[in-house]
């Protein structure tokens, strides 16, 4: 369960103050697949990073599974990021020095909630996303889609309850995009909350709920219906 209360984020720039997020009040229930749609610069990524404990809001409150995220100290906040949240970005963000298996295992180094053997769990996750034969490959040996799938496997490593995805399909071709979206749907079906930010309206049909953003203001989109591609 994610709830925000009057969350604001403003940036001071040379040309004056910019309001990236204006009094956002949203509530996301457990197990929802929420898509946040908006043009570039609408503040959707800022919202996601505040929900994920990566950027401190200028004011307001974020409650994540009953905990006031921004009232915590760095230790506790890092713990929440590591154990309750999984992140997928547009860029895959795999470390070039580690192979696929090690990359997926990396989160356990910072925080270890899962009791399974890290290497076994990482192997199973990689097999699930179809990279069972690429365990020893290094990021520079993987394709764009494969990198994204490895990043998804990594986000699941510590078995988080919420997956936050920022334009995960932004740089992919249509087929790979569908493949990745299907993967998020499967993750959602496992009971995990998925919050995804995108500029692509067409992805709305994958989500259970769609929020739209414009100039820092969040609003609920009603009656979005579409057929799965």
């Amino acid at each position: 369960m994610i709830e925000t209360n009057e969350v604001m984020k403003t940036y001071e720039t040379l040309s004056g103050r910019i309001t990236a997020l204006d009094q956002a009040n949203i509530s996301i229930k457990d197990g929802e697949f929420v898509l946040i749609v908006g043009r570039s610069g609408s503040g959707k990524s800022t919202l996601l990073s505040i929900l994920g404990g990566l950027t401190r809001p200028s004011s307001g409150k974020v409650m994540l599974n009953g905990k006031d995220l921004w009232a915590m100290n760095d230790e506790d906040l890092s713990e929440v990021r590591g154990s309750e949240l999984g992140f997928v970005f547009q860029f895959p963000g795999l470390l070039p020095t580690l192979n696929t298996l090690e990359n997926v295992m990396l989160p356990t180094m910072f925080c270890s909630k899962v009791e399974e053997d890290p290497s076994e769990r990482a192997t199973i996750l990689l097999q699930t996303v179809g990279l069972g034969d690429k365990l020893d490959s290094f990021p520079n040996q993987l394709s764009g889609g494969e990198l994204k799938r490895a990043a998804i496997a990594r986000s699941l490593m510590n078995n988080p309850s919420i997956i936050l995805a920022d334009e995960p399909t932004g740089d992919l071709d249509v087929n790979t995009e569908k493949e990745i979206m299907d993967m998020f749907c499967r993750i959602n079906k496992l009971g995990k909350t998925v919050v995804m930010v995108t500029h692509n309206q067409d992805l709305a049909c994958f989500a259970s709920r769609v929020l739209s953003m414009e100039r820092g203001i969040v609003s609920e989109e009603e009656g979005q219906k579409c057929e799965r591609i």
Binding site: L54, D74, S78, R81, G82, F87, F91, G93, P107
Partner: peptide, 16 residues
């Protein structure tokens, strides 16, 4: 910076 940001994203504390 990105690499360090990624560690923090994955739960690395400032101390780490």
């Amino acid at each position: 910076r990105r690499e360090i940001g990624l560690y923090r994203m994955m739960g690395a504390k400032k101390g780490f």
